[in-house]
Structure formats: structure tokens, C-alpha cells
Design a protein around this nucleic acid. Structure first.
Lengths: 343, 343
DNA sequence: TTTATTTACGCAATCGTTCCCGAGAACGAT
DNA sequence: ATCGTTCTCGGGAACGATTGCGTAAATAAA
């Protein structure tokens, strides 16, 4: 039932030529007479010939497709990234194959292997939260697979990386809270093994220190799955609220953590920012509609996707092996709204 | 620089066998002795042999990948759908290739042709708003390409479809507004050529009639790009608010229309629901956090993605041509919150 | 006219895999 | 001893396209 496409053979047969001639005519080779070329071109047009990319892939060992692995597609941050990736890939004639790790190391390994075996030309990946061992990536990379890391990166692997200035984003957010009179600022963060977590917590802690506030160990809660499972966030919030010394503000380090935290606070009947203020990383485009309007650190997600794709395709299309790798750092934007302003 | 994978030839050479024998041994053919099989299997294991899917695709004319075309990835509804699609595809060993039409008919045509030429095994598509002519889809479908439509479908093409009960969702939402005392209920809808628009407006209008309210032509505003461009929504809201007879409630028919409408109302300093109530289709997962908490018609997006993928793979893997097509109708859920309750 | 050069095309290998045949060996039946 | 089976395996074409090499004809140079 599969439809049979028109092949180069059909053109050859129709014109009484050899397939080599047809192939060369289509590729505008100099050794084909212009009349024959025209003949072939017209015939190809008439028969609606489309080159078979699979056959080409087999020959040329490239598929003109790139793989993308994120932990979760249904997440405003990642869907915006995929949007950016798709736009560049589309322009350059590449297909985008998407897979989600769902924060599972095992799935990440499988996804990666699968994509490699499907001979994607390169891979864009934001590491799963469970990933501590990078040997699966290293192995692929060593064998020549172009890889670009974004968002959640790792120093161990030497390749292009695109991140945002996590430290700065967290620092400014925390500083903003301090300047608005909050002193007991807690943090709800993702897994401590994640690059973004450590960087963001560093910014948070340094901001506290810069204003002579001592970071309190109990004020830092980790949610291993970065808020992908809601109960985790609830627990983190509960932990903070049952402390003897309750925080007067919370800083959250990821999209689902931020909305999950607000959801929990509201469900518990707490008022933001009167009872607790809230600032967090988020790429939700309804932050201004939320009650209270959310102060967020917004990441240039689409730009991140575009940048990562450009770097990847640069690797893919480079003639000789690239040895110099770039770490591109984008700037997050602090959008100040009501959730962090003392009443 | 591309890494060379281990092929069946390498195994053949290592074992002094022919490629045919190796191939057969790997496929567990009856005509190979069990000793040879074991030998081949061990060797394949040792050399870390992975069959080349591109070569397989070329031979078998199937790629084990499916194409998905949506208007926009960075949209909670569609990203949830893609999530559902990916989960089923992953389980069945298929790759998901994603492309966005950005509501453009031309891009939809190109995307479709591109995917066909990349020989995806099937296509999942939600039509772009500009699409009125379906000949590009029909042509592909007639040539045997399995296609499943979801969300924005069209009667002209005879294939599996997955939709929600748009009529019911709209009817119940409108009825809910009426029962809560609103009488002048306006609607902001997408393009009138879209299946979902006509169905949802029908539900809206029938609900009005059922309660002896006469639908007012001026109360229906169309946003051609379904809210993808914000200015459109602003204009629609402005049109409604400058009517002599102002509406006391607005019903919106899509995700971006709903949030865009609320955004505009708030920016104009209007209070929801005191000045205008709001109910709309949306799959945002922060509807309860919004001010006011949003009454929404939520679509089972993930389920829709899963259902569409199951139907598609059923087509793809069916031996004989399928002539009987199914229209699966899922049920939306009205989540009642503050934005639609009279104060 | 003969030789050299260009022009314009075909043959066949290649990519990795499957699969239709053919064929040798071993075996039992006659 | 001869024939027909069964069991194993190899040869080679095929999938669609590219490309190095060979070569006939046409043209240019000698």
C-alpha cells in the first residue's frame, strides 16, 4: 500500500538514458549537454520526481535530521526551546526528531542510542536530572557524533554548550528580594547534581552574603525532579513552612517549581507576597495574569534553541573535526511584578 | 569524521561466513543451524552490532518514523499533544518528527511534502488556519500515505480523526455563564474556516437559543490566527467593548485567545468577572493561579495525542488498505472557577 | 589524413540489508 | 548403488542514488 515514488530510473527509462546521466543532469554536471539536461529536468518536473533522501542517507552517511532530547515537552521553557530549534532546522533543511527523557537516565541512554542508530547528524540535549554519568554521551561524542548541550550542561564533556547566566539571574532575583525588605529568603531548587541548580544556588547564596545575610541550610529545599512531580514541591513548601524560623520569601529555580510553589502556597491559604514573597525562574507567558502577578526570571528560551541549533549545524557541516568548543551564555531577564513586592 | 558503524559484513568477515547467512542468523531464520546462529549472535554482541535503519528503510520502504505537523509547538495544548504522541511512538519504536506550520498554508504544504519525501510512515496533522484547500493532503492520502487528523479536522478527507466534542464543550461553558446570570455573552473565536470554530460557535449559539437569548452577530469576533498574534485579540476585545451594548461575559474558543483576552481586559483595567466574565478553551496548567482563577474548558490533549498515534500506527501497520475510518470524539472538561461567577 | 583532445554518455561499484535461488552434503529409502 | 529429501549455507540481485572510470563520437590540432 505504500505509494511508489518516482525514481531516477523512471526518468532514465522514459528518456532512454542511463541513470548516471540522469543523476548528473539533475545535479547539473558539466559533462552533460545542455539539451539532455533540459530534457531530464522537464521530465523530472513532469513526473514529479523527488530524490529519495533515504537512499542519499545510505550513500552519504548523513540524514539531514537532528535529534533533540529534553526531559519534558509539555513545559513552557522546553517547548519554547523546541520552537527555536525547529525554526533554524527548518531554514537549513533539517528535520527535528524529538524525544523526552522524562528525567530518567535510562531513557536518556536509550533515546541517545536510538537516535545514533537512526543516524541523526547531530544531537541537542538537555541532561536528565538523574544523569550523573556521562559515558554514554562521551562515547558517542568520541566516535564523532556532533553534540551540543543546552540548559542543563556538564563540564565533563568537551563540546559546544548554550546556557544562560544562571548565577546572574539568581543573584539579581535574590538581590531584588533583599532590596524589597525580605530577609529570610528560602530556596526551592532542583536536584543538586544539575548544573543549573548549583549555579543558581550559588547566585542566591552570594547575593545573601553580599547583603550580610547568612545562608541557612534549612532554607534550601531540593526537589529531585525539578517539580515534574507535584507532590515533591508540596513537600518542599511544607518543610519550609514548618520550620521554627519561617521564611518570608521563596526563590525557586525552575518553571514547574515556581508554579508548583505558588499553587501550594495558595492552596494552603497563604497570601503572596504578604505571608511569603515569591520569585522564580519561569517561562510561562501568563506570569502577569497570575495572582499575584509573578516576578520571574525569564530565560531567552527560543534564542537558546536557535543558538544551540546553529552551533550544532556548524559542527555537522564542518569539514574537519572541530577541536575548539564554545560556551555561549545568554542573559536572563528579571521581570518584576507583585509577587515580590512587600505590601 | 563520521563514525563507522559495525555492519553485517564485518561479522561475516570475522566469522568467514556470507552476509546472507549472518543476516539470516540474526533474524533467527530456520535455515541456519543453531551453532552458527549462536556464533553470529555472540560475534554481533561482541562487536556491538546495530542494524542500520537507513539501509532497512531503503529496502523495506518504511522508516519507523512519523511526522507531526501542528501550527505551533510553544502552546500548552499542542505541546501536551506532542507529549502524548511521543509517549506512544516511543513505546512502539517510532521516531517523532515535528514541524510547525505557524498557521501558514504554504508552510503546511512544504512540511507535508518534505515529510513525505523523507518517507515517514505516516502523518499526524492539525490543519493550519489558512488551510481551506485540502488537495495536498488528499493527494498524499490517495497515494497511500497513512494520515490521521486531530483537533482541527476537515470532512472532505476520509481518514481517521480525533477530536473533542467541541459543541458540547462550548454549549456547557455558555450554559454555565447563563446559569450564573450573564445574559450578554460575546464570543471571540478563531478563523471561521476552522472546524473547531464552527463547532464551538454552534454550541455557543445553541446554548443561547436554548435559554431564549438571541445570538447577536456583533457579539462574535473572529481572530484569524486564533490568538497567535496578540494584537488580533486586543482588537477583538476592543471591538466588543466599544459596542453600544457591551457584553457582560466573553467566551473564547482557544488557548491563546483565552489568555490573550484576559491579558487585554486586565491591561484595560477591567475587572473579571465584575465588569466582564470570562470562560474559554484552555489547556494552561496554571488556570487556577490566575487572577481571577479561570474557568476553562480543558481538552484531554495528551489523550488526544495518544489516540491519534494509536490510530495512525494501526493504519501504518495494517496489512491491507483500510477503508473504514473512525472519528474518535473525546470529552472536554469544564473546570469552573472564579472568572465566570457573578460577584 | 592521422593523432590528440574534448564532449557526452554508459557501466558498474558502492552504501547495508534482505531474500530469491541454487547447490553441496548428509541421510534414508528403494 | 541410485535417487529424492532435508539441512545449511553462499551467490547475487535489489532498494535509489552517486561517482570513478572507460569509451565512442565529434571536433580540433598536427
Amino acid at each position: 500500500m505504500k505509494f511508489e515514488a518516482v525514481t531516477i530510473k523512471d526518468i532514465a527509462k522514459a528518456l532512454g538514458l542511463s541513470t548516471s546521466t540522469v543523476s548528473r543532469a539533475l545535479r547539473d554536471s558539466y559533462e552533460i549537454s545542455s539539451e539532455t539536461k533540459q530534457l531530464v529536468l522537464d521530465c523530472a518536473e513532469k513526473l514529479n520526481y523527488k530524490p529519495n533522501p533515504i537512499a542519499l542517507s545510505l550513500k552519504e552517511k548523513r540524514s539531514r535530521s537532528i535529534g533533540v532530547i529534553v526531559c519534558e515537552i509539555a513545559n513552557s521553557f522546553f517547548s519554547q526551546i523546541i520552537n527555536g530549534i525547529e525554526s533554524i532546522a527548518y531554514d537549513k533543511g533539517y528535520n527535528v526528531i524529538v524525544s523526552q527523557s522524562r528525567e530518567s537516565y535510562d531513557r536518556e541512554v536509550i533515546d541517545l542510542q536510538y537516535m545514533a542508530s537512526r543516524s541523526v547528524d547531530g544531537i541537542l540535549i538537555s541532561l536528565s536530572t538523574e544523569t550523573t554519568d556521562l559515558s554514554h554521551l562521551m562515547a558517542l561524542h568520541d566516535r564523532g557524533m556532533p553534540i551540543v548541550l543546552f540548559d542543563r550542561v556538564h563540564d565533563e564533556i568537551n563540546t559546544h554548550k548554550v546556557i544562560i547566566d544562571n548565577y546572574k539571574g539568581a543573584y539579581e532575583a535574590t538581590e531584588h528580594l533583599i532590596k524589597n525588605g525580605f530577609r529570610k529568603i528560602a530556596a526551592i531548587a532542583g536536584s543538586e547534581f544539575l548544573s543549573i541548580t548549583t549555579e543558581r544556588l550559588a547566585g542566591y547564596q552570594d547575593a545573601l552574603k553580599a547583603y550580610n545575610l547568612t545562608p541557612n541550610k534549612q532554607f534550601i529545599q531540593h526537589c529531585f525532579y525539578s517539580g515534574m512531580v507535584f507532590s515533591e514541591v508540596e513537600e518542599a513548601v511544607n518543610n519550609l513552612l514548618t520550620l521554627k524560623q519561617k521564611p518570608d520569601a521563596i526563590f525557586t529555580t525552575s518553571d514547574k517549581l515556581t508554579t508548583g510553589c505558588l499553587k501550594t502556597l495558595k492552596r494552603r491559604g497563604l497570601h503572596v507576597p504578604k505571608d511569603v514573597a515569591l520569585v522564580g525562574f519561569s517561562n510561562s507567558d501568563v506570569a502577569e495574569l497570575v495572582d499575584p502577578p509573578l516576578t520571574i526570571i525569564r530565560q531567552p528560551a527560543e534564542e537558546m534553541g536557535r543558538a544551540a541549533t546553529e552551533l550544532l549545524l556548524q559542527l555537522v557541516e564542518s569539514k574537519r573535526p572541530v577541536k575548539e568548543f564554545e560556551k555561549r551564555v545568554l542573559t536572563p531577564e528579571l521581570q518584576i511584578r507583585g509577587s515580590s513586592i512587600k505590601l
